[in-house]
Design a protein around this nucleic acid. Structure first.
Lengths: 247, 247
DNA sequence: CGAGCACTTGATCGCTTTCAATAGCTGTGG
DNA sequence: CCACAGCTATTGAAAGCGATCAAGTGCTCG
C-alpha cells in the first residue's frame, strides 16, 4: 500500500535531488512544465514498486530511499541488476512494459511523471533528453563495472567491492570526505547483498565476518559499518585504490 | 597497424548500417554534416582499437566485423563487458579517456567521427542525440541481461545463453527467420567466450562438447554451428523460449 | 616437417553452495 | 515480565561445480 509522502515538494527549487536528477539541467520554464505533470508516491520498505511485465504509465526519480532492479528466472533464482539511489531515474521513455521488478529496499519516495506527457516534453526540451543520456551512460558504466565484479571477482572481493561502493556513494551524497574513517549503515539485507553479488546469503555472511575479523571493517550490530581505511578495503576489492569515479 | 578499408562508402545512403546506427534517424542535411567529419578505419582481427586510459579523439560506429569491450584487473583477470556488432556505437560524447580496451575480434571496419565536431553536432541535431539515447538504453538492457547470466547461471546455461544470443543477433542482421535450423560461425575464440562468460576456456570447451553430445548444437570444425532447435537451446539457457527481444 | 596456435580432454583441488543447526533481535500476547 | 513466533544473521559440515594443472590433438603456415 502506498503511504503518505512525508514531505511536500510544492517547489522543485527545494528538492534535494534538484541538481542530480533528470531535471538537473532544466531552466525555470522547463521545470514548470515538469511540475505540471509530476506527483509524489511513497513506498514502504519491501514493497514492490513495479512488477516485471507490468504496464508502465509513469517514469520518475528516486527522491529518497533505495530501490533495486531485480531479474528473476523461472526457477526462482534472482539477480539484482541495479541499485537505485536518490536522483536515479526509473523507467524508459518509449517503452510500455517493465522488464524488471523494482522494489523498495528502504522506505522510498518517488517523484513520478506521467509517461506520455513526459515523452512529449522530452522531444521538446533537449535539456531533459541530454541529461537522461548522460545518466544512462553513467548507469551503463556502472553496469559494466558490475559485470567485472560478477564475472571475475572472488566472494571476498565482491563483498569488499560492494561495501566500498556504498561507502563512496554515501560519502558523495553526504558531501563527506573519503579520507579518514567512514561510517554508515548498510541499506541492504544480507540476502539483498547476495542477490546483488551473485552469491548466497551464507557466503555473504561469512565474508563479512572474515573482513571484520581482519580489521578491514568494524561492525556495530548487523548493519552499522565503520571503515577505518577505505584504501585498504579497495585493495581487498581488487581495485586500484586511486579509482576515483563516483557513480 | 591499420590496413586499408576494403570498401569506400563515399555515400552514406549505401551504408550497410544506415538504418541501425547512430545516424539512423538523420535526414539528408544531418547526414551531410556527419559526412563532413567522418572517416573510415580498418583493423585486423586481434588488434586493439583503443586502449583503456587512452585519450579518445574519435567516436564512431562499427560498420562490419565484431569488436569487444574488455576490462582488466591489475592481476590480469579480464572480463568482457560488451560485444560490439555492426551498427554499435563506440565512445562516449563528453568523455576524454577510454574506460575499457576495445579490441577487434574479427577484422573490423569503423566509421569514425572526430569527437569535438561530433559533440557539437549532437547539441544541434536532436535526431542524433535521440538515437544515441535509444541505443544506450538498449545497451543498458543488454548489460543487465548479461548480469543475470554472469551472476546466476551455471556454466552450461552460460554457454547456451551466449550461443543463442549470437544466433538471434545473426538471424536478425541477416533477416533470416528464427524457426527451423540456424547455421552460423562463432565469431569468438573459446578464450573470448570465456572472457565474456566469466569462465575459463577449459570450461567453455567442456560445455560446448557437452551441448554437442546432447544434440543441442551441431559442430563442424571448431566454429561452424548448426542449431537444430533454438527453443530447446534457450530452455537450456534458462530463458523462457518466448523471450523475443533482439539486441 | 616442425612450430605455433586453438582447442580438447583428464585428474585433482578448492571455493562456494547446500543443508542444517543455532543465535540474536523485535514485537505480541498471556 | 516472560514466553514465543518470526525474522535476520551466523556458523558448521559436507557436497559439487568450475578452476587449475597438465597432457595431447588437429590444424595452418612457414
Amino acid at each position: 500500500m502506498t503511504i503518505k509522502a512525508q514531505f511536500d515538494h510544492s517547489n522543485c527549487a527545494d528538492c534535494p535531488i534538484r541538481h542530480r536528477a533528470v531535471c538537473a539541467r532544466c531552466d525555470a520554464d522547463e521545470l514548470e512544465a515538469l511540475d505540471a505533470i509530476k506527483y509524489y508516491r511513497s513506498f514502504e520498505a519491501g514493497q514492490t514498486i513495479i512488477w516485471s511485465g507490468d504496464q508502465m504509465n509513469f517514469v520518475g526519480s528516486v527522491v529518497s530511499g533505495i530501490a533495486s532492479l531485480t531479474q528473476t528466472m523461472e526457477d526462482g533464482r534472482t539477480q539484482m541488476v541495479g541499485l537505485l539511489l536518490p536522483s536515479d531515474f526509473v523507467g524508459r521513455p518509449g517503452r510500455d512494459v517493465a522488464p524488471y521488478d523494482v522494489q523498495a529496499t528502504t522506505d522510498v519516495v518517488m517523484c513520478c511523471f506521467r509517461k506520455k506527457p513526459f515523452e512529449e516534453l522530452m522531444d521538446e526540451t533537449p535539456h531533459i533528453a541530454h541529461r537522461l543520456l548522460q545518466m544512462t551512460l553513467d548507469e551503463l558504466d556502472a553496469a559494466r563495472e558490475w559485470m567485472l565484479v560478477l564475472g571475475r571477482k572472488t566472494a571476498r572481493e565482491k563483498i569488499a567491492s560492494l561495501i566500498s561502493i556504498i561507502a563512496r556513494r554515501d560519502a558523495s551524497i553526504g558531501q563527506k570526505g573519503l579520507s579518514g574513517q567512514i561510517v554508515f549503515d548498510l541499506p541492504l539485507t544480507r540476502e539483498a547483498m547476495a542477490d546483488y553479488l551473485g552469491l548466497t546469503l551464507e557466503t555473504v555472511s561469512r565474508q563479512i565476518s572474515a573482513l571484520k575479523k581482519d580489521g578491514l571493517i568494524l561492525l556495530e550490530g548487523k548493519r552499522h559499518v565503520t571503515i577505518p581505511d577505505l584504501g585498504r578495503l579497495m585493495e581487498e576489492a581488487g581495485d586500484d585504490s586511486d579509482g576515483g569515479f563516483l557513480v
